[in-house]
Amino acid sequence: MTKPGYILVKLVEVAVIFFIILTALFFLFRLSPGDPMSKMVDPMLTPEDMAHLIEQMGLDRPLWEQYLIYVKNFLTGSFGFSFHYGEPVSHIIVDKLKWTILLFTTSTVLAAFAGIFLGKIAAWHKGSHLDNVMSISALVCYTLFIPWFALLLLWILGFKLGLFPLGGVLSPQLWVGNASLLVRILDVLHHLMLPLMTLFIINLGSYLLLMRSSMLSVLREDYIITARAKGLSEKVIRNKHAAQNAALPVITSVGLSLAFSINGGALTEQIFTWPGIGKELIFAVSNNDYPLAQACFLLIALVVLVANLIVDLLYAWLDPRITY
């Protein structure tokens, strides 16, 4: 298979999986107690608006037609109206998505790089004090209960020491007024620190442990002896021959642990009132805002699938042994 062919196959795969999830969600909504109307149409609306919405979603049609309309609506980006905001759901979630992506990608990428780097060092000095300290700390980070850890950080760094804001993305005084872009960006970064730190530390633990064990098994490989036999310096052996190979499985595991990270991301957003998709989902679920919940869920599923796709492609690109 050629490279474009491989990418195409992967894309189709993602599309099919997403379609299955979409379908499953539709039937879950119909299976759940209560009629679908009450789930998709805000009971507080005026009768005309209600009629209009019912028409738009085909809620008075037979099930299969409803399904087709549901798929069509999804493809055109109309998810209905949020009960709580009284706005089209699509407007709300697009705004939230950027915050989730900011938090999620920065924490994952930073943690992956740091974890790979530190894991490499730990494995290289296996059995030393340095290794013991790093492995044990990583183990502790990895097993920390995320919400609890987030609350501790909030309590100590935010509340007691006052180093960081207690929540949100932007200080209220900057909402209005004409603060410069730079000031706003710095303020957002200031708000980002605590949630970022939470996710970073927890992901760092798992990537460090993975890289360490992957590196240890690579160091037992014969080609490491070959590299030594060539008279290469220890640094070249460590970085070029061991770490490059060892990092590959870690990248795969980034893909596999995405689901875990998303869970953690939602909890972190909730605690630091970071206005992302995860927090929005929890809000929607708590307030029975079904259209919003549905859209958030689908968006999260999409984020997971796309991130997985990226990891797959990255892996295929990095590992010459993958034949398309």
Partner: peptide, 9 residues
Amino acid sequence: VLPSLVILL
């Protein structure tokens, strides 16, 4: 690939 917490929610 599905996040279990999100599904439960």
